[in-house]
Simulated scan of single mutants.
Amino acid sequence: KFFESVSKTMPQDCKWYHWGDIDYGGFSMLLRLRKEITSSIMPYRMSKYELEKYENYTQTFSKEYAEKLLKLYEEARLEDCRECLNYMVKHKIKLEQEAMLT
């Protein structure tokens, strides 16, 4: 409800960004925001570049987790995130956004 209220009062040319963890939850939230608020929300610091830059802070995950990420990969609304999602699955790594504050 909060984001819907904000969305209604924002100028049409306002740019929206979402900075979440580079993991299933972060991309799920981006997908939800794009579905429910506006499709123009852009990911912020949620790319392959951050995974490479902060690789010492990444965490590994299971095959089951990778399968969940692959479902997100298939989402048309996350097409611009596919490079990062593919890299995550290939290397089996994820990254908490707090790690980028070090």
Rank of each mutant, 00 (worst) to 15 (best):
P11V: 13
R34T: 06
E50W: 14
L30C: 08
L31M: 12
S62N: 09
D13C: 06
E74S: 15
E74G: 08
T38C: 10
T38W: 08
W19G: 00
R32M: 08
F61C: 01
T38R: 14
W19A: 04
E50K: 06
G26L: 04
E52H: 03
M46C: 07
F61L: 07
E50C: 03
L33A: 10
E75N: 09
D23V: 05
T38S: 13
L70C: 07
W16C: 06
E50I: 06
K71P: 01
I37S: 05
R32S: 04
C14F: 15
F61E: 03
G25H: 06
Y49A: 10
K63F: 14
Q12A: 03
S39C: 15
K53W: 08
S62Q: 07
E36F: 11
M42R: 14
I41K: 02
Y24I: 15
H18E: 00
M29V: 13
I41E: 02
K35Y: 09
T60E: 09
Y65H: 14
W16P: 01
R34D: 04
D21A: 01
S47M: 05
K71S: 08
H18V: 03
A66V: 14
E52N: 08
F27W: 08
A66I: 11
L51Y: 06
R45K: 10
K63A: 07
W19V: 12
L70N: 07
Q12H: 10
L31W: 14
L72F: 12
G25A: 03
E55K: 13
G26E: 00
R32V: 06
Q59E: 09
Y57H: 13
A66R: 05
Y57I: 00
E55I: 15
L31Y: 12
T60G: 05
T60V: 09
G25M: 01
G20Q: 03
N56R: 14
I22Y: 01
